[in-house]
Structure formats: structure tokens, C-alpha cells
């Protein structure tokens, strides 16, 4: 199973490295969003809560772009069927795609987050732990739910609409937790246990559910 997961991750990274459209477009979108927000605020510093919300809005839209793009790797020439015919537990396909999508999303986060300090005048983090945990949990959680939904909607004709429309409501608990953690890192709030717990529980849920259901879903 690990060999299959690693092979899928390497394949997705190689495909993205060759074309470089995916990360470039997601990062560019993020920068443009931050620049427009900076223009709207006219040089005034953005409140921490609004900045945290804006950051996760950028990451959420980048997530939609990235996941739709990486799933197209499998759709071109139906390579997806080649994966399904492999003699491995089919959940390995899910976890391989999940790791690759998490990696891409985390790279976008690393590129876009500093622009909030530089362009929008948001102060540097007073506490790094909630920011790092929030970014990591957000990347894994969004990639997990998104990857799962992409497989669920793979046979749907209106997938480009259906996918983001179903992703956003499903990720509200996660977004709530990571936005609170991100805002707290800029304002040094205490009592964050509940948000760590919500993010952790969400990751456990969407890390395990696909493992249990994936074989069933792809066979129907």
C-alpha cells in the first residue's frame, strides 16, 4: 500500500513539475486577491479576524482549483481505470491523491501567507503554534474532503459546479477552527483547545471515512 501511495504522489508531483500551471495559477490568484484587498483598505492595516477570513478564502478557492486540476490527470485518457485495476487496496489511490493535494495546497499557503504581512500590514504572528497547526490542519482537511468529494462526483456531469458547492458546506467546521487558530496567532488569544480539538476530530473523521468507504464508492 505504501509503495502505491508513494508512486501516486511521485507521479502527481512529476506531472505538476512538468507543466507548472497548477501552483503558478493558484499562487497568482492568491497574490491578486491580496493586492485587491490592499487597494480596498487603502493602506490601513486589516483587522486580524478579517485577515484570517481573507487568508482562508484564498486557500479555499486555491483548493478548488488545485483539486480539479489534479483530478484531471486521471481523467485524461481514463488513466483512472488503470489505477482501479491495480492489485492494491483502492484506498491507496485516495491516500496517494490526498498526500499530493496536501503538498500542493501547503506550498500555496507558504507562498500566500507572508503576503498578508507584507502587503496588507497584518502584524507577524504573536504565537506561531496556532498558525502552523491551522495551516497544516487546513491543508490536510481541505485536501481530504476535496479528494473524497472529487471521487464521489467523478461521474457527475456538472462536477465543476457540484464540487465547490458541496465542498464549502462540508468544510465549515474545519474552516471555523482554522480561521480561529489563524486569528489567534495574530492576537495571542488563549483557550484555543476547543479549536485544536475540532480540527483534530475533523481530520480523524475525514482521514478514516474514505478508508472505510472508498472501495465501495468506486465499484458502484
Amino acid at each position: 500500500m505504501w509503495t502505491a501511495i508513494w508512486a501516486i504522489v511521485q507521479k502527481d508531483v512529476t506531472l505538476e513539475y512538468r507543466r507548472r500551471w497548477l501552483l503558478a495559477s493558484a499562487v497568482l490568484f492568491g497574490f491578486l486577491f491580496v493586492v485587491v484587498l490592499g487597494i480596498a483598505y487603502n493602506g490601513k492595516p486589516l483587522p486580524a479576524d478579517a485577515a484570517a477570513g481573507a487568508l482562508w478564502m484564498v486557500i479555499l478557492f486555491s483548493c478548488v482549483t488545485i483539486l480539479l486540476r489534479t483530478s484531471s490527470f486521471e481523467e485524461e485518457q481514463k488513466a483512472w481505470y488503470g489505477l482501479l485495476m491495480a492489485p492494491v487496496d483502492r484506498s491507496a489511490i485516495f491516500y496517494g491523491k490526498l498526500v499530493a493535494n496536501t503538498l500542493f495546497l501547503f506550498l500555496v499557503e507558504l507562498a500566500v501567507t507572508p503576503s498578508f504581512w507584507v502587503i496588507l500590514g497584518v502584524p507577524g504572528p504573536a504565537s506561531w503554534l496556532p498558525l502552523v497547526v491551522g495551516l497544516a490542519a487546513g491543508a490536510v482537511g481541505l485536501a481530504a474532503v476535496g479528494t473524497f468529494l472529487l471521487f464521489l462526483t467523478s461521474a457527475s456531469e456538472g462536477r465543476e459546479i457540484l464540487f465547490p458547492v458541496s465542498l464549502i458546506p462540508l468544510t465549515i467546521p474545519l474552516l471555523l477552527a482554522v480561521i480561529r487558530l489563524t486569528a489567534a496567532s495574530w492576537t495571542r488569544s488563549d483557550d484555543l483547545f476547543v479549536w485544536y480539538a475540532v480540527a483534530g476530530g475533523y481530520l480523524v473523521l475525514f482521514g478514516l471515512v474514505p478508508w472505510l468507504l472508498f472501495e465501495l464508492l468506486v465499484e458502484v
Binding site: A4, Q77, P87
Partner: peptide
């Protein structure tokens, strides 16, 4: 299995495609 579509990745070379599926198999 061979379908009417190639089931290959256009962005990978022939060798990379075969190595990828060979590792899965």
C-alpha cells in the same frame, strides 16, 4: 485491460508511465 482510451498519462514519458504502473502492479 486495454480500453479505447490509452489509460496513460500524457505528461509522463513512455518509460515513466510503464514504471508507474509497474510499481503499482
Amino acid at each position: 485491460l486495454v480500453l479505447q482510451e490509452s489509460m496513460l498519462y500524457g505528461g509522463l514519458t513512455v518509460r515513466e508511465n510503464l514504471r508507474f504502473f509497474g510499481r503499482l502492479y
